[in-house]
Structure formats: structure tokens, C-alpha cells
């Protein structure tokens, strides 16, 4: 199978929330991503699945313009990340894999700092912070030092921070790693609610298969290659598996070297 450019979700008419076309990336001689192409529609929950080292974080670094996209192109709501990085980044909220809160500052100071990085200040920032703390169930904690929060609470604050500038696309890189089951479920539910109610597109990178629902869209990476893309139920059906867990195992065992899009 050789179809390269696939799209997950959406009606096909609107501008893609994220359009990744032929992206490759290497660290010196080591290839981390190899000609990866996919796109995701607005207001969809897309899971980026891959084992450790599959290239998920590299892909996130390219989408967020931390690294330069030298081969291929990435567009966010039609804005090329290289040519119009400012416009593109205004559409995106990002939760990185590593914790990025300033531990010496309070929750409010962390959020206020991020708001200013998007040109949002004063009363508007205060209102948004108050509203978002409620959204992530952290109201009343604005004066707590970030250092005093649990891992799950820090993640919630990071999600609130990523939403401060009202992005249309949210990128979360292994956002639940290291959290207990309850915290993971809570964060996942919050994100799914955002897709449903706010209409935010989400790219959720994970290697935890139990975070995937049958109705989700999925993009599967293996050793830097895109091995599958489509709805989860399509993936299961096309791979002849009983569940997404089996399908994921099969895809990671596949000996085929090229891109194998699972597309019913």
C-alpha cells in the first residue's frame, strides 16, 4: 500500500487543522521521521500512537516550530509553520511531555506569564485564567506555588495554560505519563469535553493504548514511519485484529518497511 497523504476526520471541505506533508527529520545520521504525511480536521480527537522512540516528540517539536521543518511542510489551519510561524502558533496550544511550569512561581503567575506571551494582559488575562481554572477543576488554587501541586494538578494547569489564548488546535505530548489512573482519566475526560463542547481539534500523543476510544481518529508511527492512519475502528478492521490493542501490536510487529496506510 502506498497512499501517502491521509486525513483523519472532518467533512473534507474546511481547512485542515493540521496538515503534515512529507515530513522527514534526522538527528545527525539517525532518521527520526521518514516522509510522514497526514492531516487532521478541526474539532476532532486524533491519537498519535507510537512506542517510545517512534518519533512522536520529534513530530511535536516540528509542529511547534522548536525545530525547523527542512523536508516536507507543516500547515496549521493553512498557515505554513516555516513561512508564517506566528500565525500558525497563534492557532495552537501545546502541552509538552516535560513539565514546563516555573516551580518558584504561583499558578496565577505561571498562567499570567503565558498569557503575556500571547499578548493577553490585564483584566482579560485575569478573566480567562479564572474561567480556565474552573474548566480544569483547579479553581481556588491560583495562589498556590506550582511546586506544591501534584503531578496531575500540574498537568491540569498546563492544559489551562495551553488554552489561554483560545487555540483551535491542542497538541498534547504524552500528557498523562507518570500520572495515576484517576488523574489520567480525569485529564482525558477534560480534553474530550473540549473537543465536544468547544470544538477544539486535539492531537494526543501517547503510547498508552487504553487512552484510545473506538470513535477516535488515530495516526500510528513506528520507527519514524507512518504505518497507519484512520479511525480506530477502521484500523482494527483493516488489520484483522479484535481490538485496538491487538491492532497496535500487529502494526508494531509488521515487517513491511514502507508506509502501510490502513484505509477501508
Amino acid at each position: 500500500m502506498s497512499v501517502q497523504h491521509v486525513r483523519t476526520g472532518g467533512s473534507g471541505n474546511e481547512v485542515a487543522a493540521l496538515d503534515v506533508v512529507g515530513v522527514s527529520h534526522s538527528y545527525g545520521p539517525k532518521r527520526a521521521l521518514n516522509n510522514v504525511s497526514f492531516s487532521i480536521a478541526p474539532a476532532t480527537f486524533t491519537v498519535l500512537l507510537g512506542l517510545n522512540g517512534a518519533g512522536k516528540t520529534t513530530l511535536f517539536s516540528l509542529i511547534s516550530h522548536l525545530y525547523d521543518t527542512r523536508h516536507g511542510s507543516i500547515r496549521i489551519f493553512g498557515h505554513d509553520i516555516r513561512r508564517a510561524s506566528g500565525e500558525a502558533l497563534r492557532c495552537v496550544g501545546i502541552v509538552f511531555q516535560a513539565r514546563t511550569l516555573d516551580l518558584d512561581l504561583s499558578v496565577y503567575q505561571n498562567l499570567s506569564y503565558h498569557a503575556s506571551l500571547h499578548g493577553i494582559g490585564g483584566g482579560e488575562a485575569r478573566q480567562r485564567i479564572a474561567a480556565l481554572l474552573e474548566t480544569v477543576d483547579m479553581q481556588g488554587r491560583e495562589h498556590d506555588k506550582a511546586r506544591s501541586l501534584s503531578g496531575g494538578q500540574m498537568r491540569r494547569i498546563e492544559i489551562a495554560r495551553a488554552l489561554l489564548h483560545r487555540p483551535s488546535l491542542l497538541l498534547l505530548d504524552e500528557a498523562t505519563v507518570g500520572l495515576d489512573v484517576q488523574s489520567r482519566a480525569g485529564i482525558l475526560a477534560t480534553i474530550r469535553r473540549l473537543v465536544e463542547i468547544e470544538g477544539i481539534g486535539v492531537l494526543w500523543a501517547t503510547h498508552l493504548i487504553d487512552e484510545v476510544d473506538d470513535g477516535d481518529h488515530a495516526v500510528v508511527l513506528r520507527q519514524g514511519n507512518l504505518v497507519a492512519s484512520g479511525t480506530v475502528s477502521d484500523l482494527i478492521q483493516a488489520s484483522g485484529a479484535d481490538s485496538i490493542r491487538d491492532a497496535f501490536s500487529k502494526l508494531n510487529r509488521a515487517e513491511t518497511a514502507g508506509i502501510a496506510e490502513i484505509s477501508p
Partner: peptide, 22 residues
């Protein structure tokens, strides 16, 4: 490749603010 139908209220989601910062 099949595409799922989007709820009506979400289909209108468009890129966020445009224009340069002042």
C-alpha cells in the same frame, strides 16, 4: 479513507484570530 461526519456546531470552527500583533 472514510471521514466521520462532524457535528454541525463544530463544523464552523475556523482558524483563530488573524492579523498581526499591535
Amino acid at each position: 479513507m472514510s471521514t466521520s461526519a462532524m457535528p454541525q456546531k463544530l463544523a464552523s470552527v475556523t482558524p483563530v484570530r488573524s492579523g498581526a500583533f499591535g
